[in-house]
Measured scan of single mutants.
Amino acid sequence: KQVQVGDEKYTFDTPEEARKFAEKVAKEKNLKVTEKNGNFHVE
Score class of each variant (00 low, 15 high):
Lys1Asn: 15
Lys1Gly: 13
Lys1Thr: 15
Gln2Pro: 02
Gln2His: 14
Gln2Phe: 15
Gln2Asp: 09
Val3Thr: 02
Val3Pro: 02
Val3Gly: 01
Gln4Leu: 15
Gln4Asp: 06
Gln4Phe: 15
Gln4Trp: 15
Gln4Arg: 11
Val5Thr: 04
Val5Lys: 02
Gly6Pro: 02
Gly6Lys: 04
Gly6Ala: 06
Gly6Phe: 10
Asp7Pro: 08
Asp7Ser: 10
Asp7Asn: 13
Asp7Glu: 12
Glu8Cys: 15
Glu8Gln: 13
Lys9Ala: 10
Lys9Phe: 14
Lys9His: 12
Lys9Arg: 13
Lys9Gly: 06
Tyr10Glu: 01
Tyr10Arg: 03
Tyr10Gln: 03
Tyr10Ile: 05
Tyr10Pro: 03
Thr11Leu: 13
Thr11Phe: 14
Thr11Arg: 08
Thr11Gln: 11
Thr11Asn: 10
Phe12Leu: 01
Phe12Ser: 02
Phe12Lys: 01
Phe12Asp: 02
Phe12Asn: 01
Asp13Gly: 09
Thr14Gln: 04
Thr14Ala: 02
Thr14Lys: 02
Pro15Met: 14
Pro15Trp: 14
Pro15Asp: 11
Glu16Val: 05
Glu16Pro: 00
Glu17Arg: 00
Glu17Pro: 00
Glu17Cys: 10
Ala18Ile: 00
Ala18Lys: 03
Ala18Asp: 04
Arg19Thr: 04
Arg19Cys: 13
Arg19Tyr: 07
Arg19His: 08
Arg19Trp: 05
Arg19Pro: 06
Arg19Leu: 12
Arg19Asn: 07
Arg19Val: 06
Arg19Gln: 10
Lys20His: 12
Lys20Tyr: 07
Lys20Trp: 07
Phe21Met: 06
Phe21Glu: 05
Phe21Ile: 05
Phe21Trp: 07
Phe21Pro: 05
Phe21Val: 05
Phe21Arg: 04
Ala22Glu: 06
Ala22Thr: 00
Ala22Gly: 01
Ala22Leu: 06
Ala22Lys: 01
Glu23Tyr: 05
Glu23Leu: 00
Glu23Thr: 00
Lys24Pro: 01
Lys24Phe: 07
Lys24Asp: 12
Lys24Gly: 10
Lys24Tyr: 06
Lys24Arg: 08
Val25Arg: 00
Val25Lys: 02
Ala26Val: 01
Ala26His: 01
Ala26Met: 04
Ala26Ile: 03
Lys27Trp: 09
Lys27Asp: 07
Lys27Thr: 10
Lys27Ser: 11
Lys27His: 11
Glu28Asp: 12
Glu28Phe: 00
Glu28Ile: 09
Glu28Gln: 08
Glu28Arg: 05
Lys29Thr: 09
Lys29His: 14
Lys29Gly: 11
Lys29Arg: 14
Lys29Phe: 08
Lys29Cys: 15
Lys29Gln: 12
Asn30Lys: 08
Asn30Phe: 07
Lys32Phe: 08
Val33Trp: 07
Val33Pro: 04
Val33Gln: 03
Thr34Glu: 08
Thr34Leu: 11
Thr34Ile: 14
Thr34Gln: 09
Glu35Arg: 08
Glu35Lys: 09
Glu35Asn: 09
Glu35Gly: 04
Lys36Tyr: 09
Lys36Asn: 11
Asn37Ile: 01
Asn37Tyr: 03
Gly38Val: 00
Gly38Phe: 01
Gly38Pro: 04
Asn39Glu: 12
Asn39Arg: 10
Asn39His: 11
Phe40Lys: 04
Phe40Arg: 04
Phe40Ile: 10
Phe40His: 04
Phe40Gly: 05
Phe40Asp: 06
Phe40Trp: 11
His41Lys: 07
His41Trp: 15
His41Leu: 14
His41Thr: 12
His41Pro: 05
His41Ala: 09
Val42Phe: 06
Val42Pro: 05
Glu43Ala: 10
Glu43Val: 13
Glu43Pro: 04
Glu43Leu: 10
